[in-house]
């Protein structure tokens, strides 16, 4: 039957897309490890990668001590932001929602700033990864609470996005004031970090990032059924057995944690959360979270790795902020979405 075929067709499509994305991720990761001031061929990368660090071998040192850390960070960072974006888009029922536009990244940034700059003032170590993550988490949750409070009053999502932008500016101003008042070495790093960059990642950071991401990727995937039902809106979700209040809380918690953990170590990286889910939807022609979540994770990872690669190679030996690269890709996409909205009356 024709319709049976359509469903199967979608299944096949999803499998193909996921496999291609996985392959793309592997290729881009290997290339990203290889490309840099010293070029290492892909075959050599693979060879070195699966051996323990050999301190007598330059390639091994470059791969293990310099590049791998950064590639893994950008991989998890991209995936986490993409998933956070997808979750927020489902929550707000709007494809333009994402942690950056809603100001959640900025909130996290402000609080990480407070934690790092303030913590140093009070004699705390700024190196503690969990400490930074905690700062980011508090920031993103505070921001989320403010946005949701506004959402109670403002029903138009577009207005809500403007609110997010305003809050974002406010946070930037606060960070600016803070940096002006702070007088220590942390400020230089903090400024670079404030533009969004994976360059300051340490293995310590990456471990926290990977653990938190791993856990929350799985947890988010387990919500697939409820997320699918939430597509029809909260009222319908309730009538089909979803505990809407709990689900909303979990979406906020998960997207907040994912945004926080990336922002804590890499600063606010813009537009990944908006563009990746949208491209995934176009690729899969589906809204089904069961395939959309893995697709977003894979594509987000590819996106993160490639953008970070561009950030450190385009102006080599100088370095661009990855946030700037993702913006260059993301902004045209948002504009495209807005234009399409006017055309079809959707969103």
């Amino acid at each position: 039957m024709k319709e049976q075929n359509t469903l199967r067709h979608k299944g096949v499509r999803a499998t193909v897309v996921l496999l291609v994305l996985a392959a793309l991720l592997a290729v881009s990761a290997v290339l990203a490890i290889g490309i840099g001031s010293v070029f290492i061929s892909p075959s050599r990368v693979l060879e070195v990668l699966f051996q323990p660090t050999d301190l007598t071998n330059t390639d091994s040192i470059i791969v293990h001590n310099m590049r791998l850390c950064r590639v893994v960070a950008s991989l998890f960072g991209g995936a986490a932001l993409a998933l956070a974006g997808l979750l927020l888009q489902i929550l707000f029922n709007n494809p333009i929602a994402d942690p950056y536009v809603l100001g959640i990244s900025s909130g996290a940034r402000l609080f990480v700033g407070l934690a790092v700059l303030g913590g140093v003032t009070f004699g705390l170590s700024s190196d503690n990864s969990w400490f930074m993550f905690a700062g980011g988490f508090v920031g993103s949750m505070v921001m989320m609470a403010v946005i949701l409070a506004f959402a109670q009053k403002i029903k138009s999502v577009t207005s809500l996005l403007i609110v997010g932008m305003m809050l974002s500016y406010l946070c930037s101003a606060a960070v600016g004031i803070m940096t002006s008042l702070s007088d220590n070495d942390a400020v230089a790093d903090f400024t670079r970090w404030g533009m969004g960059s994976f360059s300051l990642m340490t293995w310590d950071n990456v471990k926290v990032l990977a653990v938190v991401c791993g856990v929350f990727f799985v947890l988010s995937f387990l919500l697939s059924k409820s997320l699918n039902l939430y597509l029809l809106g909260e009222a319908y979700a309730k009538t089909m057995g979803v505990n809407a209040r709990l689900l909303r809380f979990l979406i906020i918690l998960f997207s907040g944690v994912l945004t926080a953990v990336v922002t804590a170590f890499a600063g606010p990286v813009a537009f990944v959360g908006m563009s990746v889910p949208h491209i995934s939807r176009l690729l899969l022609k589906s809204e089904d979270s069961r395939v959309l979540i893995p697709a977003c994770l894979l594509l987000g990872a590819v996106f993160g790795v490639v953008c970070d690669l561009l950030a450190r190679t385009v102006a080599a030996p100088g370095e661009l902020a990855v946030g700037n690269i993702t913006s260059c890709v993301g902004v045209p996409l948002v504009l495209f979405l807005l234009l399409r909205k006017n055309k079809s009356g959707r969103y």
Binding site: N93, P95, L231, L232, G233, A235, Y236, R281, L284, K285, S286, E287, R346, Y347
Partner: peptide, 8 residues
């Protein structure tokens, strides 16, 4: 209520 979902 109006429902706005794209790719379904």
């Amino acid at each position: 209520q109006k429902i706005d979902i794209g790719n379904l």
